[in-house]
Design a protein around this nucleic acid. Structure first.
Length: 424
RNA sequence: GGAGAGAUGCCGGAGUGGUCGAACGGGCCUGACUCGAAAUCAGGUGUUCGCGCAAGCGAACCGGGGGUUCGAAUCCCUCUCUCUCCGCCA
């Protein structure tokens, strides 16, 4: 959620930032400012009406204490009209307040000034790449064929048991999943992240806190009987651990990590995008989250990029980093970097991590604050990143390391996998 | 799932209609004493919003929401959560 007083004091800057993601930035910001103006007016009237009533109520109290019953009764009658004025002022205030809150809840974050304006993914900038994608003119089987050949994943069984997008991993395929999860978690712990195992279902307040609700309502699986949501990412339960918390400055930065399955409805997807492991309704991911002092959040973002890049380098997978343009940015993000590995057989890049700085957007939504050096409370910055999402890593690994009879795994995985290769 | 009890500030714990943002104790901070510390003494110690250059003033918050009343932490309704007992259960 945007800080409304920031918008008041720096309207031009806010419009300039918002323009990077929304052509109607000016109207959007001005609607917020207008709603804020109305709300403050309404609050003033309400406060004043309430103060008048409170004053008289206290007088009635002291009259009664002095035993002046008759005078108190007279005053009671006189106060009646004050009460209706209060009720009216309160109703107006509530209306103005909820209008403002609704606008704030549905307004996306301001992109960082460094973020390029743009419409969609085609405007993203490639800022870094590592490794050499192999000559993909040779004979390469796509991962879904490799999965069948080596009996790693049974897509049809998943369709039967649940539905499309819920693959069944088996044998060496299941073991590879476990190896990757453990590898990613161990790396995160080594980098100073504290491991958590959070719930896989969250309530609506948590969904709101990180910005999935109301923006992505409909993208999450909703358990209506209990009004709970299956998490689309561990970011949600992890960051919401600190919802409604006032931290001390010395608590920062907080670094959290968790492995969880992730559930996404992804309505409207089709075609080659959803073939094999490309896009699933359930997948596994290790997530890293940081809560930092506002002044150090972009350094923390760099640190997270280095961590994610390090994982891909250890796996030996060529990758590139994109800085998302404004139009491709998620609702809550101020700046996002996507990591993509190359699919040798599909001849295209696959997104395997998305690493973002939300600045104060989530902290304000979830009332997360810290006391700074001067004793004032203010929202910290929150960040998160996939480190990493498994399915497309598995797809890249299988395709990149495939040979005729064997898929030779990178050496970092050997101790986790218990073998050097996936074998027929 | 059934029965009962409860939810108050950083913690413990009072408060059952008015002077309660909240007694008392502990913690923490500041000052005094001390070479220093402990003990002791004095003072302070929440969050949010609005107005104001500021000092300050006003409003709201005693689990959430709603109601009664001139006035609610206190009364009523409702929801959630916690605890105890019973049942069920990986």
């Amino acid at each position: 959620m945007l800080n409304i007083s920031y918008l008041r004091s720096a309207r031009a800057e806010a419009v300039d930032r918002m323009l990077r993601r929304r052509a109607d930035a000016e109207a959007l910001i001005d609607a917020l400012l207008k709603a804020d103006e109305l709300r403050r007016q309404a609050q003033n009237r309400f406060d004043e009406a309430k103060a008048r009533l409170n004053e008289q109520s206290q007088r009635i109290g002291s009259l009664l204490r002095e035993g002046k019953k008759a005078e108190a009764e007279t005053l009671k009658n006189e106060v009646a009209h004050l009460k209706s004025a209060v009720q009216e002022a309160e109703a107006r205030f509530q209306e103005a307040e909820s209008h403002l809150q609704e606008l704030l809840a549905t307004t996306p974050n301001l992109p960082h000034p460094q973020v390029k304006a743009g419409r969609d993914a085609s405007d993203n900038e490639i800022i870094f790449s590592w490794g050499q994608p192999p000559d993909d003119t040779g004979e390469f089987l796509p991962h879904w064929d490799l999965a069948r050949k080596f009996q790693l994943i049974d897509f049809e069984a998943g369709v039967k048991v649940t539905g499309a997008g819920f693959p069944v991993y088996m044998r060496q395929g299941a073991r590879l999943q476990r190896a990757l999860i453990n590898f990613f978690l161990d790396e995160a712990i080594q980098a100073g992240y504290t491991e958590y195992q959070p719930p896989h279902l969250v309530n609506a307040d948590s969904g709101f806190g990180t910005g999935q609700l109301p923006d992505k309502d409909g993208q999450m699986y909703h358990v209506t009987a209990d009004d709970l949501y299956l998490i689309p990412t561990a970011e949600v339960p992890l960051t919401n651990l600190y919802r409604d918390v006032i931290l001390k400055a010395e608590d920062l930065p907080l670094k959290l990590t968790a492995y969880t399955p992730c559930f996404r409805r992804e309505a409207g997807s089709y075609g080659k995008d959803v073939r094999g492991l490309n896009r699933l309704h359930q997948f596994d991911k290790v997530e890293i989250v940081q809560i930092t002092h506002p002044e150090t959040s972009y350094a923390a973002l760099e640190e997270m990029l280095a961590h994610v890049g390090g994982l891909l380098q250890k796996l030996g997978l060529p990758y590139r980093i994109l800085r998302l343009c404004g139009g491709d940015l998620g609702f809550a993000s101020a700046m996002t970097y996507d990591f993509e590995t190359y699919s040798t057989a599909q001849k295209r890049w696959l997104e395997v991590s998305s690493t973002s700085n939300f600045e104060t957007f989530q902290a304000i939504r979830m009332k997360l604050r810290f006391k700074d050096a001067s004793g004032k409370t203010q929202p910290p910055h929150t960040l998160n990143g996939s480190a990493l999402a498994l399915p497309r890593i598995v797809a890249s690994l299988l395709e990149f390391y495939q040979e005729k009879e064997v898929i030779r795994l990178p050496s970092v995985l050997h101790p986790y996998f218990g073998d050097e290769a996936i074998r027929l």
